[in-house]
Structure formats: C-alpha cells, structure tokens
Simulated assay, not measured.
Amino acid sequence: MVLIVTFAAIGFLIDAMGFKEALDTHWVDAEIRGQGVRGDALFVLVGGVFIAIGLPRQAVCFLAGYAFGFAEGLVWASLASLAGCVTAFFYARFMGRDFVTARFPDRIRRIDAFLAGNTLSMTLLMRLLPVGSNLLTNLAAGVSGVLALPFFVGSLLGYLPQTVVFALLGSGISVDPVFRIGASVVLFVASGVIGVWLFRRYRHGRHLDSATEAALDETGDDDPEQAR
C-alpha cells in the first residue's frame, strides 16, 4: 500500500504541476532538440522518471527517435529505460522489501525461484515476453532477493528489441515511412514470438503469476513436455 500510495501521489503531483504533457513533440522541440548535453541529460532524466512511475516505456522510445534520430535515440531511450528500471527497483527494495517478504513469503519465493540460477538470462526471457507490466516486474524484483546487477543487465538487453522498434518509428531519418513501419511491426512480432518460445522451452518448472502463465500457454501447445 505504501508503494501504491506514493506512486499515486507522484502521479497526482506531476498532473498538478503541469508535467503530464511534458513528454510530447512540442516539449522535445523546445527543450531537447539542439540543446546539446543539457538536452540529452534532461531527456534521460525525465524519461527515466516517467518510466519509473509506470508510464509507457514505448512512448519514451518513440520520442527519443523523434528527438535524436534512430541511432542516437536508441542510446538515450535505452538509458532512460534503464534509469526507470533502476529507480523503481531500488525504491521497492528500500521501501517495501521487509514488509512484503514478511507477509507474502510464498510469492516472494516464487519470484526468487523463477530468477534463481541465472538471473540475467531469466530476466532477459521475461523482458522479451509480450505480456506483463514493466513497472510491476521492477517492483516485484525489488522486493525479492534477486541480485541487482544481473537484473539490470538482463532488463537492458531485453528492452532492446522494443526500443529499436519504437525508436525506428519515431525517427525522422531518410528512410521510407512504409519500410520503417513495416520493419517495426516485423521486429515487434518477432521479439514477442522469440520471447514466448524461449520462455516455454527453458522455464523448467519456473512459474510467473497465473495471469501471465495463462496468456503464455494460449500461444501454443499446453503440453509441458513439448514446451520444454
């Protein structure tokens, strides 16, 4: 409840101070483009805060492509995504870990068991899946006992396919728009399919929450032996 209330308070504060519309093309044109290092740092800072409180990461990636072009936008969008992940993770770890682990030990054990053994690769698989919430994943990992660095590296790598997709969509480089949109759709679908296939093949008894498991099982044969 503390986590929920404080994140809600941050959201109301952003709305009250007029920051709700901050991440749009007008703001990018006025504050980011042509501002050099200041603009780069401001984009990463604001984008990271917005991602940390649960706003769509894809929108930040799209605007990075719009502001900086594809290649540079990919870099700054990735850094903003990582900043949002790190912020939410440590917020949950410092604010809610003791409280949650004392009251929901079984659920925390399930998260730890899913990520155990190779946190980096299992986080990568989880990030590639086309279902689930980025914010809830960050908070759940924060209150669990997983190591921070492998989780961050796995997240950064797992974010990459969608970051490429939306930075490409937002970029204004001299690429035919039909090709750009078509390539983005193909990459988006391909990353989701690969994520589901890898998860079903390598989860080996690891389980996420029931809603995510049900969504993933609808994507293919429910035979657990075949899934492995």
Rank of each mutant, 00 (worst) to 15 (best):
L157T: 11
F151C: 13
S174R: 12
G182M: 05
S171Q: 02
L139R: 11
N134R: 03
V196D: 10
G154C: 05
V189F: 01
F188Y: 11
S171Y: 06
S155T: 15
A190L: 12
S144L: 15
I181A: 09
T163L: 14
F152D: 15
V178Y: 10
I194W: 13
P150N: 12
V164L: 14
Q162G: 07
V146C: 06
I194H: 05
L169C: 08
N134A: 08
F179I: 13
T137R: 11
S171H: 01
P150H: 02
V165W: 07
G145N: 15
L135C: 05
G182I: 05
G195Y: 00
I173N: 15
S174V: 12
S155I: 05
V196R: 04
L147D: 15
V178F: 06
S191T: 03
L135R: 06
F151Y: 13
L169K: 09
V186F: 09
A140R: 08
V143K: 14
R180W: 03
R180V: 01
V165I: 06
G158E: 00
V193I: 10
F151M: 15
L169T: 09
G170W: 09
G195V: 05
G182Y: 00
N138P: 01
Y159A: 14
V189S: 03
P150S: 05
V189E: 13
A190H: 05
P150I: 09
G192W: 00
L147F: 04
V193T: 05
I181D: 06
V185L: 12
V164K: 10
F151G: 09
A190V: 04
F151W: 14
V196F: 03
A148E: 15
L187P: 01
L168D: 10
G195R: 08
F152W: 14
L168M: 13
V193W: 11
G145K: 14
R180N: 02
S171V: 07
L169P: 09
V143I: 14
F199I: 07
L187F: 01
T137Y: 00
I181N: 05
I181T: 11
A167Y: 06
D176A: 02
P177T: 05
Y159Q: 14
G195K: 09
L198S: 01
D176S: 12
T137P: 00
D176Y: 06
I181Q: 12
G170L: 13
V189Y: 03
F199H: 10
V143Q: 08
V165K: 11
S155V: 02
S155R: 08
F179D: 12
G172H: 13
L169Q: 08
F166Y: 13
F199W: 14
